[in-house]
Write a protein that binds this DNA or RNA. Structure first.
Lengths: 254, 254
DNA sequence: GCGGATATTATCAAAAAATGGAATGAAAAG
DNA sequence: CTTTTCATTCCATTTTTTGATAATATCCGC
């Protein structure tokens, strides 16, 4: 087996290790990292120890695996919130808002919450005020339910197992099995709605943004006071939303 | 102005530079990065060039500013898509705190100390303030004694052999043989308590988190001011703690 | 407990990279 | 055209890193 050594400066090597761990969908053992990074064992061991000591990685409690650390999570979010990436996506959002006339949001899963990466607000003075970076619950928002529904089964179950379903409005889904059915339906129809489940009078539709591999990595959502645009009217914009979502997906690749 | 130089290995320095650029909401000039990173100018220049050549950063068209590169965008995405383990455990803690009403901690052994992996605090304003990542002694905490007690004999004896037992309160166990008996009892009863042994007025109960093979790899602990919840009342929650510990254990398997 | 994997620590001399003060260059500002 | 500011290059020195090898330790299933 041709063991081609990665010959790059340590700074880059270290980053490659982080990428290896980030790409994996479970925590990795040292051996696995060594193999993926094509570096000698002692070297990787030394580097991993360094990364752990600086909070970028953490050892799993099982003592043999390594996962992303809190410092990396914070970093990842900052990267995605960073304006240089926002630029392209912001334009897509703007065009969408222009067409629909209501506030549109670009969101991702962050832990067990939805985080707003970007948004463009309706010109109308009556509107929700949420800044990029703010978080909302999973169980009573269109984005949240959508992102949860589209997750691979293992991850999804890990999250739903202990997800509290606190009531926010009369229409919030607070029953576990009802929630499961809702997710199932969302998975089937490829979009999610929020029918006044978070704020009374506020309705919302979300569609998935799927990256190359087909994984849903983010969501695009429109929301509006139902007095101005009831759910039925919002659903008419599904094709427009989906088109914008595809453009978004492309913006991840470039 | 004391120009404190950042003296860390290059791998970490490089990452700090990325953090600096990610935190900024506009592209930064080399001078700005230099200042924020507290590093000499040529050093930063060289490193930035390296990061640019590897696609982590890009030069803005204006030629003087640097922004996040596409490789970082992809990385940030992976990081956020990866957070489900941490999130799932956090949810378990949250549910537990909701039930008990007092701060709960998820801890493991790190060398001869206990390290906090995660915690959810009581809503009550009177509470200990400890961040995830902080460390506490083994001999006077419920988690510490528990993790020690459940260790395989060989390892345990190696640790206890040279473990100092400094006094923290009147109730701290400072006698070696008394400590041995305590560990023995903990092993028998499968949980540990801290009855004001670390901080006067603070009591604590810990149960083991055991992975598939039955090995104890982490601990789940509740703590509270004894004025609000004396040990006896905390012990009533043992079943709840054990249930949560089992869920934690399940988060290791897949 | 036993044996085969895996992980950690140690060694160490060669090789590579980082270092940072100073000098130089380039570009914007006045 | 001069000044100022910032970016880039130079380079001799110092510091890390490197990675083959190997000894230990630890873990796993049996």
């Amino acid at each position: 087996m041709a063991r081609k050594l990665d010959r790059s400066p340590p700074a880059l090597r270290a980053f490659s290790l982080l990428e290896v761990v980030a790409r994996a969908d479970k925590p990795l053992t040292l051996g696995q990292i060594t193999e993926a990074a094509r570096l000698p064992k002692p070297t990787v061991h030394r580097m991993i120890a360094l990364l752990v000591s600086s909070g970028l990685l953490v050892r799993e409690p099982d003592g043999r695996r390594y996962a992303l650390g809190p410092r990396l999570s914070a970093f990842g979010l900052e990267v995605l919130l960073n304006s240089s990436f926002r630029a392209a996506r912001h334009l897509i959002l703007q065009a969408l808002v222009e067409q629909i006339g209501e506030t549109c949001n670009f969101t991702m899963l962050d832990g067990a919450q939805v985080v707003y990466l970007d948004r463009v607000e309706t010109p109308s003075p009556l509107r929700m005020n949420l800044q990029p970076g703010s978080r909302v619950p999973l169980h009573c928002t269109a984005s949240g339910k959508l992102l949860l529904a589209m997750l691979p089964k293992a991850k999804r179950e890990r999250l739903t197992a202990n997800l509290p379903l606190p009531r926010h409005t009369a229409k919030t889904i607070v029953d576990g099995s009802r929630f499961e059915r809702e997710l199932q339906q969302i998975r089937a129809q490829r979009y999610a709605t929020d029918d006044e489940e978070y704020f009374a009078g506020l309705v919302c539709v979300a569609v998935p943004v799927r990256e190359a591999a087909g994984r849903t990595c983010a969501a695009l959502a429109v929301h509006a006071p139902m007095s101005r645009m009831p759910l039925a009217r919002q659903l008419e914009y599904l094709p427009a939303l989906k088109r914008a979502a595809e453009q978004m997906a492309r913006s991840f690749i470039d």
